[in-house]
């Protein structure tokens, strides 16, 4: 008994999906401008190209029939294995803690600000 028997399921039919609205001369001209190409010299050649494009577009739209509601995030290009290495990074700085975080640094600007603040706090309440 063979493991697999001839199938009656047609891949071509699966990939046809719901045919979208075909593109015409106007859309074709727009696509040409987007990719920096010119129309062919003959009308027949342009029509052949449009026909091929519409065939490809039908294949592209086949994915619309798929239910992907269970997918939380789209595909991301593979580059590094998770947990393989960790890079050193600075702790997060939230906007509302910017002055608190600044005290951890010795930047000139913030140092001046701190100095001004200290001077202001040392003023006598009876100075006026």
């Amino acid at each position: 008994m063979p493991f697999l028997k001839p199938s009656k399921v047609s891949l071509k039919r699966i990939l046809q999906g719901n045919p979208p609205k075909p593109i015409g001369l106007t859309e074709y001209g727009h696509l040409l401008r987007l990719v920096g190409l010119r129309e062919a010299d003959s009308k027949e050649e342009n029509e052949r190209t449009i026909l091929k494009l519409n065939e490809g577009i039908i294949q592209m739209h086949a994915i619309e029939r798929l239910d992907t509601s269970f997918i939380k995030e789209p595909f991301r290009t593979l580059n590094h294995a998770i947990n393989a290495e960790s890079l050193p990074s600075l702790p997060d700085q939230e906007p509302w803690n910017v002055f608190q975080n600044a005290k951890k640094r010795d930047g000139q600007y913030f140092a001046v600000y701190s100095k001004l603040k200290d001077d202001s706090s040392n003023e006598s309440p009876n100075k006026q």
Binding site: L34, L37, L53
Partner: peptide, 19 residues
């Protein structure tokens, strides 16, 4: 670009622009 690129490449570029 129209002169130097072949038909198959042009078709795929157009489909990519469509996408």
């Amino acid at each position: 670009r129209s002169f130097f690129l072949g038909d198959e490449v042009k078709k795929r570029l157009l489909l990519g622009a469509y996408s």
